[in-house]
Design a protein around this nucleic acid. Structure first.
Length: 135
RNA sequence: AGAGUCGGCCAGGCAGUCGCUGUGCCGGUUGGCAUGGAGGAAAGUCCGGGCUCCACAGGGCAAGGCGCCAGGUAACGCCUGGGGGGCGAGAGCCUACGGAAAGUGCCGCAGAAAAUAUACCGCCUAAGCACAUUGGUGCCGGUAAGGGUGAAAUGGUGCGGUAAGAGCGCACCGCGCCGGUGGUAACACCGGUGGCAGGGUAAACCCCGCCUGGAGCAAGACCAAGUAGGGGAGCAAUGCGCGGCCCGCGCAGCUUCCGGGUAGGUUGCUUGAGGUACACGGUGACGUGUAUCCCAGAUGAAUGACUGUCCACGACAGAACCCGGCUUAUCGGCCGGCUCUCCAC
């Protein structure tokens, strides 16, 4: 384990292999380069809660990255809440998604929304991206 | 019982399902099991330290902070106890609380005058001069008691004194000085004595005393792999750095010789001025001893989501090297000390 990056240990495996809804390190975007590629040629899905960017990756499974800016969401508690909701929703729905790298950005109004509303919004984003990127 | 005041504590609970992450054990791997997983402010970054690197040869000038006394502490601008002053009926609360006869500045409006004093309305006419000569009138003057202005007007009250007045004199209070007593001290009390010296402002400059190197975990250390970074010697001038400036010192530049570094990862990274219990010392902050416990350590960043249920219907708010404080935000609830008022006995 010495000298080997933490995230590289299990990333060859498919996180859906066990059939459970897991969300380990290899289901996340870890490097700045990963984010750059998504930002450079994204497919967008926007509503008044989130802006969701996605592009196809070389893995066998989707990966998630979060970009909740301090500018958009001032309170640290609110930022944590939004991130947790996004991860939870991704975890639940990742089996339905193709092999995409996804970046979720917060919008100015995100802080005011309740958890249920955020979950509803995210569900819409997942199905939209799934349909668009599959074909 | 009500009102108030001070101090301390808690920060939704329980159950189920699905997750994230640290550690330990098992396992060939996927993984499994066990166990730990935000706060009283984690916040603001306002002080003080530890830790790390740089500068550590010092000097001068600046700059900043602090400011009743004693203690506590690693240290502090913090805390505790005490003193002075102010507020409150009281418990209690507030206090930037050294120096204004070292110097400089400022003091709006009003007011005569805001500081080497001065005289608006007033008061007086004793002494001197002139006129009249019966009281008187004017000049030369005296005075600051009274009025008025102001936040503030050259001690306060009373008696004497006087032409009217004035620390001019006296008593008490205040102020300064001296001595004594108590107290570690700040200071308090008592006695004597002096004479009216002197406005306020030092979170205005300033003076006095004390304190202060610079940067910060993206500090710094280590590891693996390619493209020119490091060390030694010589050289004139320029730039940069050592918090600022002047010395002073160092580095960069050019020539020459010798050997190897930044993007990623590991570490620093949580055992500590540590918590809990008891005993002892101390008015207290706190200290000492013994026993016992290990109590977040992420790094695109964990500590959660959903459902059910109960109630008082859940505020402010999220660790990022670590501690000690301060300040600010906060739905509500609980406990205790003390004070005042009312009722009953």
């Amino acid at each position: 384990m010495r000298g080997v990056p933490k995230g590289a240990s299990g990333c060859q495996r498919n996180p859906l292999g066990s059939g459970k809804e897991r969300f380990g390190r290899c289901s996340r975007l870890l490097k700045a380069d990963d984010f750059k590629t998504v930002f450079s040629r994204p497919r967008k899905s926007v509503d008044d809660c989130f802006t969701v960017l996605a592009c196809a990756n070389t893995q066998k499974h989707p990966r998630l990255g979060l970009a909740i800016a301090k500018r958009q969401v001032r309170s640290a508690v609110a930022r944590n809440r939004i991130k947790r909701v996004i991860r939870e929703s991704f975890r639940r729905h990742q089996s339905l998604l193709p092999a995409l790298d996804i970046v979720v950005l917060a919008r100015r109004g995100t802080e005011a929304k309740g958890n249920a509303e955020l979950f509803r919004s995210l569900q819409g984003h997942w199905s939209r991206l799934g349909r668009r990127c599959a074909g």
